[in-house]
Amino acid sequence: MRLPLFFVLTTVMIDAMGIGLIMPIMPNLLLEVQGGSLADAAIWGGILSTAFAVMQFLFSPVLGSLSDAVGRRPVLLVSLFVMALDYLVMALAGSLWLLLLGRIIGGTTAATHATAGAYIADISNPTEKAANFGLLGAAFGIGFVLGPLTGGLLGEIDTRAPFYAAAALAGLNFALGWFVMHETVTDDNRRAFDWRRANPFGAFRTIGRIPGIKALLWVYFLYSVAIYVYPAIWPYFTAERFGWQPQMIGASLAVYGICSALVQGGLLRYMVRWFGERGSVIWGQVFDFVAFGILAVIVSGNLALALIPIAALGALVQPALQGLMSRTVADNQQGELQGVMTAVHALSVVISPLMMTAVFAQFSDPETSHYLPGAPFLLALALMMIGCLVLLRSRSSVT
Rank of each mutant, 00 (worst) to 15 (best):
G208C: 12
G243R: 10
L149S: 11
L98M: 13
A296R: 02
F292H: 09
S124R: 03
G202W: 12
L307K: 01
F204Q: 00
V12S: 00
N125V: 11
I233V: 15
A330K: 02
G152N: 14
G314L: 04
R395K: 14
A232G: 14
F289M: 15
I207D: 13
I22G: 09
A306N: 07
I105P: 08
R209V: 05
I351A: 04
V286H: 10
H370M: 07
F242N: 02
L169M: 11
A232F: 13
S364F: 10
T11K: 09
M341A: 03
L303W: 06
L77E: 12
P27E: 02
A358C: 04
L303T: 09
A42L: 15
A167S: 11
R197M: 07
F81E: 04
G45H: 04
A116P: 05
A139S: 13
F292V: 10
G102T: 02
R241Q: 02
V12L: 08
F163R: 05
L391S: 07
T108M: 09
R278H: 08
P231A: 11
I282P: 02
A311V: 03
A296C: 06
G45L: 12
W178E: 08
P27G: 00
A312Q: 09
L77K: 13
G284P: 10
V398D: 11
L96I: 15
L92M: 09
M83G: 00
W244F: 14
A165R: 04
I142D: 01
A251Y: 08
W178M: 12
L337Q: 03
R209G: 03
S124N: 03
G107E: 14
I123V: 15
A304M: 02
F221K: 07
V286E: 13
F174A: 00
L153F: 15
K214C: 05
G335P: 03
A110Q: 04
M90H: 08
G36S: 03
P353G: 07
V82T: 04
L253T: 06
Y228C: 12
A39M: 13
H113T: 14
L92T: 08
L48N: 05
F174Y: 07
T50N: 10
M1T: 07
G177N: 13
V12K: 02
A53K: 10
Y371G: 05
R196N: 15
T108V: 06
P200T: 11
F163L: 02
P235Y: 01
I210N: 01
R196T: 15
V359L: 03
V317E: 06
Q318S: 12
P366W: 00
T184M: 11
T108D: 06
S348P: 03
I210H: 02
L222Q: 09
A346C: 09
F363N: 05
N125D: 14
M271L: 09
L48R: 04
L379T: 11
S67Y: 05
G171Q: 04
A130V: 15
M13R: 08
P148G: 03
A261K: 02
A254W: 05
I123K: 07
L295H: 03
M90S: 08
L392C: 00
V317A: 03
A166H: 05
E183S: 07
P231T: 15
L149F: 10
A304Y: 04
V255M: 00
Q334D: 02
